[in-house]
Simulated assay, not measured.
Amino acid sequence: MDQRPSDRSPHRHPHWVYDVGDEPDPRFSLANERTFLAWARTALAVLAGAVALHSLDVPATGWLRTTVVVILVVLAIVCTVMSILRWARVERAMRLRQRLPAFTAGFVLAGSLVVVGALLGIALLLD
């Protein structure tokens, strides 16, 4: 059942998500929000790891530490942006009864962490 424009709440943002389709089961929307919050916690943990590496001078190789810290900070930013976009795309897909979007963010995060782990491993071998 499509809602008429006058039935829509003007206080729900973003409009491109909430002004389409039908209201999904609240359990699904809340699960989508919990998933977003899990991604936000992951981004925060990655950022904390970057701060720890920078603060503790680990690894001792300066240029490699700086490279890993920059990669982690960028990864935290990308993870945050991707989590917001994924939340919106999933919510919109549920409202329109479409297939859910692909899980690209997980592959980006996993691949980036493999690169960071390899760089840290190399750094520890060089020390």
Results as ranks from 00 to 15, higher is better:
117 G>V: 05
60 A>F: 11
106 G>H: 10
79 C>G: 14
113 L>Q: 08
91 E>C: 00
49 G>Y: 04
46 V>L: 07
79 C>V: 11
43 A>E: 06
100 L>V: 12
76 A>C: 06
58 V>W: 10
106 G>C: 05
83 S>H: 05
82 M>D: 13
86 R>I: 03
86 R>M: 12
117 G>S: 08
58 V>P: 07
48 A>R: 00
84 I>Q: 13
112 S>W: 01
62 G>E: 15
50 A>D: 05
78 V>R: 03
94 M>V: 09
92 R>P: 01
66 T>I: 11
93 A>V: 09
88 A>W: 09
62 G>D: 15
109 L>M: 06
118 A>K: 06
72 L>W: 05
59 P>W: 04
105 A>H: 05
98 Q>T: 12
75 L>G: 04
83 S>E: 00
75 L>M: 10
94 M>N: 13
106 G>P: 00
77 I>D: 09
50 A>V: 05
99 R>Q: 14
57 D>Q: 12
108 V>S: 00
91 E>R: 05
49 G>M: 02
45 A>G: 09
102 A>P: 08
88 A>R: 15
44 L>I: 09
77 I>E: 03
82 M>R: 14
96 L>S: 00
80 T>I: 06
97 R>A: 14
71 I>T: 05
110 A>V: 13
82 M>H: 12
93 A>H: 03
85 L>M: 15
78 V>W: 07
50 A>G: 07
96 L>W: 04
116 V>A: 11
108 V>Q: 07
101 P>S: 09
115 V>I: 11
42 T>W: 03
53 L>V: 05
114 V>S: 00
70 V>A: 13
108 V>N: 01
114 V>L: 10
44 L>N: 08
102 A>T: 12
81 V>F: 07
54 H>D: 08
115 V>F: 02
53 L>N: 03
117 G>M: 00
45 A>Q: 02
73 V>M: 06
66 T>P: 01
57 D>N: 13
100 L>W: 10
80 T>Y: 11
75 L>H: 01
84 I>V: 15
75 L>I: 01
63 W>Q: 13
69 V>L: 06
79 C>T: 15
106 G>V: 00
86 R>H: 14
66 T>F: 11
67 T>D: 07
47 L>T: 03
81 V>R: 11
99 R>D: 15
88 A>E: 13
82 M>Y: 11
76 A>K: 02
43 A>D: 02
63 W>G: 11
89 R>M: 06
109 L>P: 02
89 R>W: 11
54 H>Y: 13
61 T>L: 14
71 I>R: 03
116 V>S: 05
48 A>L: 07
69 V>Y: 00
106 G>F: 01
64 L>Q: 08
118 A>M: 11
80 T>N: 00
47 L>G: 01
86 R>C: 10
73 V>H: 03
68 V>Y: 06
57 D>H: 14
94 M>F: 13
109 L>D: 06
104 T>E: 14
